[in-house]
Design a protein around this nucleic acid. Sequence first.
DNA 1: GTCCGGTCCTTCGGGCCCGAAGGAACAGGG
DNA 2: CCCTGTTCCTTCGGGCCCGAAGGACCGGAC
Lengths: 178, 178
Amino acid sequence: MDPDDPDLLPAERKVLERLGHLPLDFRAMAALSNLFRASAAVRRHMERRVLAADRLSWTSFVVLWVLWVWGEMESRDLAAAVGISKPTSTGVVTTLERRGLVRRRRNAPDGRMVRVSLTEDGLRKIEDLFPRFNAEERALASHLSPGEQEALAAMLRSLLRAVEGEGRAAVRQAEATA
Amino acid sequence: MDPDDPDLLPAERKVLERLGHLPLDFRAMAALSNLFRASAAVRRHMERRVLAADRLSWTSFVVLWVLWVWGEMESRDLAAAVGISKPTSTGVVTTLERRGLVRRRRNAPDGRMVRVSLTEDGLRKIEDLFPRFNAEERALASHLSPGEQEALAAMLRSLLRAVEGEGRAAVRQAEATA
DNA sequence: GTCCGGTCCTTCGGGCCCGAAGGAACAGGG
DNA sequence: CCCTGTTCCTTCGGGCCCGAAGGACCGGAC
């Protein structure tokens, strides 16, 4: 990690200047801190440029998208697919239901289950919105070559599997100890 | 984008199956959707494994870290460095102030400014916490080679600059139109 | 038939999050 | 000395976010 590397962000240079003497892994730090910076920046960009016109939050948009791709789902699977907790999912679905984009059904053989699906309005909304969303994704990603985009996606998948593996390892550890 | 690529996540395969016939940029979509998946997963992992013991949220932790690296800062610069809005920063600083980790001062020549800095407790907290945080970063990143970690960081910087460039372009556009 | 552990969804409490609007302070022009 | 426009921080309102706890329901054991 050369503090004079012109590619570094100002914040990264400042960190090396102030913490460079400590025994830290600056390479891992650069990779992960830029993961959060980039993710938050892209998310805010999308919320302002694509979603704000429909008064949709990022998470609401992801819920519509997941329901579009997977069709009607049980509530717990929806939360897992969106990547939020069940209480959060309850709240977001309630908001979308109030706006008529999503529907809850409770007539399954198992009386605990709640099934969630798009309404006609919700389907029209995501079919209209997603192509515009993807066009903006394309515009941002175009600053990387196609090969870089694929390499990026592949490395992020590794990271994701690493986290989930550690999580499961921790669970097994806890279970073994108990 | 081969739907049979064994590296794809199940969710990515489902998307190709359901949306594959539409004229979308699936390469950009893979790169960006995995950006959010990975970022959210790593964040939750860190919150649970490293921060929960100190009852610190991710954002509170980042505030402490930024103040550690930069020293006393004006409130608006703190918000920008952390990557949150000024109202959010007000709230987080209030929380941290109530817990005695951070201090607000208002004695600048310019009476509007508020300067924020770590207290002694806050300094001890971040000095204790950050090495453990970084060890966990290292453990996750170790699933990528050093070269991959650097390539990942570099691509994320490009993406970040792309977003910020588009943002500034939009601002210039709005100003020119007005 | 009645427990009883497990699995659902939801509610609750506290915190983060943003845009819009409020209110104090500054700076420059009349 | 005022205005007037700008730049700060904060407050407000509504939404997202999670862990813990509540309440309904299921299924197998007795």
